[in-house]
Design a protein around this nucleic acid. Structure first.
Length: 473
DNA sequence: CTATGGCACGGATT
DNA sequence: AATCCGTGCCATAG
């Protein structure tokens, strides 16, 4: 029946349960999480080593695939009409010397990466080359708290660029993890965090206003005064204060150092470095898509051959430890490889099926389920689920979206709905919208229209005004 | 009387 | 087995 070549480059592997279990565990990690995990393992397992990644002489990027750089020599590696998928072993921008450090400090603590580097690596892919200098400059002027210690205008003057451009770079930095880093003031950091949180959960009303207007009052716990000043209830202010204590951090840098080393007790990052970046190879409509999959250490993590050799020569006294190290190392490398191939296959398939969606936006999403995709790829459903969860993709338009959006059953309808409402002359009732949608081929119940509206944050019809007078088309 | 939001149920999805 | 999602019914607001 469906005979896709399974695992093109993997040799037969023993299907041990340990293998399976760990592969599963790795698959559901995002690139960022995986990098941490592998680093930790690398630090305590001497059987592992990192070798250099290939670097394409033309585009200077690292890649884990075999053969020539798939990005610069697509013709050699890909059939026409197929998306070009390749794997980057790491976020390739700053050339840290982390590998050596980690090796050297293997017996000590984790090699520590500084905050600027950490942030820079996240945002580099989204940044035009000219702006990286600026970003680096900004990041090197952060104080211990992760806040910008020089005025923005200083940066602009230094590089002779408009303020707005610096502002753009800063905005990008602020949205990296730790969220709010690089803000000129605690307020700004809080506002950014708030904005990001608001995308995924509800935040108390008026919180932005409160932070903006009455930061000092808030910090002095003068809630009543603040309530009076911005004209809301005292208990609302108290709620805001509580929310801030629980969820926000005016000094993003501290959170970074505090949490990242002690464990995963920190809040899951809302916004992360994408796990893959999709770009069309050029502007022509026929252009194949380029999918760059970030898979930390893919292809460069391996079992140290010296270690393997040494284990036979050493006397029997403490081989136990060595053997277990070796076993763990082999397992990890294999699982990592498996994880990468699975994700690559997934992304390649998605790039084919959802080409229109990727290029032309939400309206063209082809509804699909994880289950159906699992069948096509001949893997278990749960594998797809894990591979999809907690991963994000950067689309050609620069937006970073969760991979799960590719499986959103109602996205099409919701965008159609948004469009209808945007174009409406006078407010339409939910049932009217339901009928209109039906004409477009989307049959949804009136009740469902209401829910979609709510999801999109659109007010009910009686609260909507006949929108702007300046509607052009 | 019409338009919405709340609750809850059943089927699909994970 | 647990969760999510669309939908119907009903109460409530306008």
């Amino acid at each position: 029946m469906l005979q896709t070549q399974l695992r093109p480059s993997t040799q037969l592997r023993p299907l041990t349960t340990a293998h399976l279990a760990q592969t599963m565990a790795l698959i559901e990690l995002s690139a960022v999480e995986l990098e941490q995990k592998v680093q930790a393992e690398l630090a305590k397992n001497p059987a592992l080593e990192v070798k250099d990644a290939r670097r394409c002489p033309v585009c200077k990027r690292q890649y884990a695939d075999k053969g020539p750089c798939p990005r610069c020599h697509p013709a050699q590696t890909q059939q026409p009409d197929q998306p070009i998928v390749f794997v980057s072993p790491r976020y390739d921008f700053v050339h840290t010397r982390r590998d050596e450090e980690t090796v050297q400090e293997r017996d000590g603590q984790l090699a520590k990466e500084d905050l600027p580097t950490y942030v820079l690596k996240q945002i580099a892919p989204e940044l035009p080359t000219e702006d990286r200098q600026i970003a680096a400059f900004i990041l090197s002027n952060l104080d211990e708290d992760g806040l910008l210690e020089i005025p923005i205008i200083e940066v602009a003057r230094y590089y002779h660029v408009p303020l707005s451009r610096v502002g753009g770079v800063i905005a990008l930095i602020q949205h990296a993890d730790p969220i709010g880093v690089g803000s000129p003031s605690p307020q700004d950091a809080l506002l950014v965090q708030l904005e990001v949180l608001a995308e995924h959960q509800s935040v108390p009303p008026h919180a932005p206003t409160a932070i903006q207007e009455g930061m000092d009052l808030l910090s002095r716990h003068q809630y009543a005064e603040l309530a009076r000043q911005i004209n809301i209830q005292v208990n609302q202010v108290e709620e805001i204060a509580r929310f801030m204590c629980d969820n926000l951090n005016p000094f993003p840098g501290r959170a970074y150092w505090g949490d990242i080393r002690t464990g995963q007790s920190d809040t899951p990052p809302v916004f992360t470095q994408p796990d893959a970046i999709i770009t069309p190879v050029d502007d022509s409509p026929e252009a194949p898509l380029v999918v760059e999959v970030f898979s930390p250490y893919a292809g460069i993590l391996r079992v140290n051959p010296l270690f393997r050799q040494a284990i036979n020569q050493v006397a029997e006294n403490n081989t136990e430890q060595w053997k277990s190290d070796l076993g763990r190392a082999e397992l990890l490398v294999k699982c990592l490889q498996q994880r990468t191939t699975t994700i690559v296959r997934l992304m390649r398939r998605l790039a084919v099926i959802q080409r229109e969606f990727i290029l032309h936006g939400d309206k063209h999403l082809r509804p699909q389920t994880r289950a159906s995709l699992a069948k096509e790829l001949q893997v278990h459903e749960s594998t797809i689920s894990r591979a999809v969860s907690s991963k994000s993709v950067q689309m050609p338009n620069g937006h970073i979206i969760p991979l799960s959006k590719f499986f959103d059953r109602s996205l099409q309808v919701r965008t159609a709905l948004k469009q209808i409402i945007e174009e409406e002359k006078s407010p339409l009732s939910d049932s009217a919208i339901s009928i209109l949608l039906d004409e477009q081929g989307y049959s949804v119940a009136r009740r469902t229209v209401a829910k979609y509206r709510a999801m999109e944050g659109i007010l009910p019809s009686h609260l909507r005004q006949s929108q702007d007078v300046v509607e052009v088309s």
